[in-house]
Design a protein around this nucleic acid. Structure first.
Lengths: 97, 97
DNA sequence: ATCGGATATCGACATGCGTCGATATTGACA
DNA sequence: TGTCAATATCGACGCATGTCGATATCCGAT
């Protein structure tokens, strides 16, 4: 794996490398249509609302999820391209030779 | 995915979530027997020897690689259990529902 | 016994990260 | 228009991280 490729993928892994964000991503992916409202995610954590909002922003900035506002609610949806990119990472780098 | 599982896996992802460590892991995996001597890894980076040693320690502490000293040289080898654990993460969490 | 090369550890520095409370913004609805 | 509820942004705090130079450790060879 080249240096540029590593520089590209590392930020996505970094975004995922936090227990809260891992669970958030898992919750989003496991919902119908791979999307979830913030109001569904908040009660699952004993963290403040700004903290969850911050973590969702980190996932969004890394390109792992996309935001959609519907009325007062905001829905986060997994981005399949990003998931696929991570999958190919595992195939190319972490698969046994 | 449960909170405990997230707390278990996040540190492994964190260890991988750095461009230098991603490349180190990739280089180790791509060698015969999935092992590489530090002396083979060092020249690939424009970083000091202590810095590379530090990154290898991070990978080791996360359980991703194991150390073996042979004479003056130290070999790092990928731990298949850890790789498998990460693979199952992708299956269970990031696979499309 | 000593020297030299390979690797690890230490101490320090700047930067980044997770968290919070306080506040701003947005939109539905009376 | 005004209020309330949902979400984001801001500023601050303590702690972790990536990097380095200096030094220690270990081991083979002379």
């Amino acid at each position: 794996m080249g240096a540029e490729q590593a520089e590209t993928i590392a930020p996505m892994l970094k975004a995922l490398a936090d227990p809260v964000r891992l669970r958030l991503m898992s919750m989003v992916m496991s919902r119908e249509g791979a999307e979830a409202c913030v109001c569904e995610l908040l009660p699952a954590f004993e963290l403040s609302q700004p903290t969850i909002s911050h973590h969702l922003k980190v996932l969004h900035d890394a390109g792992l999820v996309e935001r959609e506002k519907r009325g007062v609610w905001v829905y986060y949806r997994a981005r399949p391209e990003a998931i696929a990119a991570l999958g190919s990472l595992f195939d190319s780098v972490l698969a046994p030779a």
